[in-house]
Design a protein around this nucleic acid. Structure first.
Lengths: 275, 275
DNA sequence: TCTTGTGAACGGTTTCACAGCA
DNA sequence: TGCTGTGAAACCGTTCACAAGA
């Protein structure tokens, strides 16, 4: 869950930071018309960049809005939507304001309009073909989703090094060999690579995905990947997640030990029983 | 990957925010001796809280340090370690400073010492028993890790609603029924629940996990969970990750369209071929 | 001389509070 | 009247730059 940039150098950037010299900014949500008026070739772009944190939340809003639409809702207030998303309403409104002004004062937002605008902003009007590399437990599970969450992310290639697996279809797609990553990815126009290999293989496989022209990598391997600047990496790290939870358990236990009552009610397993 | 707090109310808190009235702070890394001198029952805790972002990175440093130790390294400088972790060295040093001063100026850090201190800080000296609920594709994969990443997180219970699955051992542990979550979790002293059910079941299953006394939940279901305040939730959301990547692809495509050369070299699939 | 540890500046994100509009 | 949209303030995390110390 962390974006990286920069390649093999000590001053490597982290998260949404850019390497020192990069211009940054200049990404326009094209906040006005759906039609692409993006012909003006002027270096000064119009709109401000959307904060990464807001982008993540927009995806969450989108899911909730889609569910609401399915249940027949046509309008929603910032209060309702923010409650459903678990954020406060000011934050929600600010997030929505980054993509334009699509609400009606005194009334709320039209669900359908928001859905459309968020989809456009997130680039979901276009399909993003996905390849999964490493068909072990996790890769298998990912491949079997067969057409990732919520459409728009069809899995179109699978890779593994195991000869027993190569050629076998998983979730409808035959597994190709890791060696063929560059060719296959280029042929099938893969834009997102999902890395689910053991850590030792991760960097090599990553390099091949990059050679195959993928623009983004979703990395499940517990490894810090080195990629060229134009490739976006996001990391999902199970061990780190568990360790963060562990930290919170420890913190809480610590506080209780120190005589602070964190919550007068229950105190979780391994601790006191409620009187 | 977002922590939540607060239960069923519009003003619900998000991320590391606390509900308005909560005291906050007061978690001490016990920065001095390994021995537990935590007998003083004074309400004023000694050390400042470690930022959540830093905690996540500490877990990453720990993995790298463990690998280095295995390869026989005994000391490491902030420069080396930060390069391996993909962060800048100032950030690394600040992160380490949150847990105490274990470096030697002009020299660096002792690998073994750092490993020990980070483990202590993250609460990894204690075992955290894990239960996985929802043994579908993903749950299966998680269960088969059998003893989660890097030891310390043994999987000790599995749950599903499918009668054909109940009783069947997966990764050595027989699957129990979702209805039995509270009893089984309490009996086996589960402290971390992993939610891998379909979204519709997630909140119910979550409630049972909480009833069973789990203190933390790692949520793979695309749902905003409502939990009591003393339960920590972290979310891993595949769809959101992909959509964030999609956003970046779209942004980049947009910029290129506007005549900005993002990277003079390659431009990813679907785009220009390098001259 | 070299590297840590950290105060201070900076930049990004969240929250507040209210003006603007239906 | 009610809810959106947004400047401005508050907050938090990151980066800088250098003093401290082995």
């Amino acid at each position: 869950m962390v974006a990286q940039r920069g390649r093999r150098n000590g001053a490597a950037a982290h998260k949404r930071t850019r390497p020192p010299g990069t211009p940054d900014a200049d990404n326009a949500p094209t906040a006005e018309l759906p039609a692409v008026s993006a012909t003006a070739a002027y270096p000064e772009a119009r709109a401000k960049s959307i904060p990464e944190a807001a982008v993540a939340r927009l995806a969450v809003y989108l899911r909730i809005l889609s569910a609401m639409a399915e249940q027949g809702a046509t309008t929603v207030s910032s209060e309702e939507l923010s409650a459903a998303a678990g954020v406060n309403s000011a934050k929600l409104r600010k997030d929505l304001s980054y993509i334009g002004s699509y609400g009606t004062r005194g009334v709320g937002y039209e669900v359908a309009v928001l859905v459309g605008q968020i989809e456009r902003t997130l680039g979901l009007t276009r399909q993003h073909k996905v390849a999964v590399a490493g068909i072990g437990n996790l890769g298998h599970a990912l491949a079997n989703y067969g057409g990732f969450p919520g459409r728009g992310f069809p899995v179109e290639a699978l890779f593994d090094i195991d000869p027993d697996l190569v050629g076998v279809p998983v979730g409808g797609i035959p597994v190709s060999h890791l060696d063929d990553i560059p060719q296959v990815c280029a042929e099938r126009q893969i834009s997102i690579g999902v890395l689910a290999t053991p850590p030792a293989a991760a960097q090599t496989v990553c390099d091949r995905l990059v050679a195959g022209g993928v623009q983004c990598i979703l990395n499940f391997a517990p490894v810090v990947l080195q990629v060229p600047e134009h490739v976006e990496v996001r990391k999902v790290d199970l061990a780190v997640e568990l360790q963060i939870l562990s930290f919170h358990v420890a913190r809480r236990a610590d506080n209780e030990l120190n005589g602070k009552v964190v919550d007068p009610a229950v105190a979780g397993n391994g601790a006191v029983v409620p009187s």
